[in-house]
């Protein structure tokens, strides 16, 4: 596979240059932007394979970029990159369409690996994201993130739950495949279906919201 074409969106020059240095040679960086509007414009123009998206930026942050590009029917894949670990922010960006979430202290090789997987259409769940998602789907009433997902419509299957737990425990997809005696592809498909459920919950709520207001 040729090198994926990557676009950087981050309002901190230091972070961008750090990421550039770590990725140089292994991926092709086709551009970078430090604010929402410029990012939207340049991504539409250059159509990269993967956008590395900072969650927290002025003027709406990564969420604004994601929403604008989703509306523009842009097929670019997003990997969210952040120092913030407020569960609400992370879940929100995943639900808006990001295909994965990693924290900024991820090592260079791990980040490269994540970009290749996103470019290939896979999903990247870091242990922390797996924890947030488990929390969001927690069956115990009163869990703080319950409100974020439609619990009745989209329960996780026991297998999906198992896979998420293993990710949270620090297993790589390959480790999980060995542990559960399934193929890496099956692991991938479980994680993808979790992501789909998260994003679906979003759509259900939207349609409910719309029908309640006679918009649909």
């Amino acid at each position: 596979m040729s090198q994926p074409r990557v676009f950087l969106v981050d309002d901190h020059e230091l972070i961008r240059s750090g990421i550039r240095a770590e990725l140089s040679g292994s991926v092709e960086i086709v551009g970078e932007a430090d604010e929402v509007d410029a990012a939207i414009e340049m991504i539409l123009e250059r159509t990269p394979d993967v956008v590395l998206l900072d969650v927290h930026m002025p003027d709406g942050g990564g969420l604004a970029v994601l929403k604008a590009l989703t509306q523009a029917q842009c097929k670019v894949r997003f990997l969210a990159l952040s120092v913030s670990d407020a569960a609400e922010d992370v879940i929100a960006i995943i639900r808006a369409g990001a295909r994965g979430y990693v924290t900024k202290n991820i090592s260079g090789p791990d980040l490269t690996d994540a970009i290749y997987r996103i470019a290939a259409g896979d999903v990247v769940f870091s242990p922390r994201l797996a924890g947030f998602v488990l929390d969001a789907f927690a069956s115990e009433p009163g869990a703080p993130l319950m409100a974020l997902v439609d619990v009745e419509l989209d329960q996780l299957t026991p297998r999906e739950r198992q896979v998420l737990r293993l990710i949270a425990r620090g297993y790589t997809y390959k480790d999980i495949a060995t542990e559960l005696r399934i193929s890496s592809k099956t692991v991938e498909s479980h994680v993808s279906s979790v992501l789909r459920k998260l994003q679906l919950a979003n759509r259900h709520q939207l349609t409910n919201w719309a029908s309640e207001r006679n918009l649909s």
Binding site: G131, S139, R165, R169, G170
Partner: peptide, 21 residues
């Protein structure tokens, strides 16, 4: 260089995993 700790509270039990590679 990295140790993963995962704790989970379920209605019936607590579990804790400490893993290194």
């Amino acid at each position: 260089s990295i140790i993963s700790i995962f704790g989970e509270v379920e209605p019936a039990a607590l579990s804790l995993f400490v893993r290194d590679t």
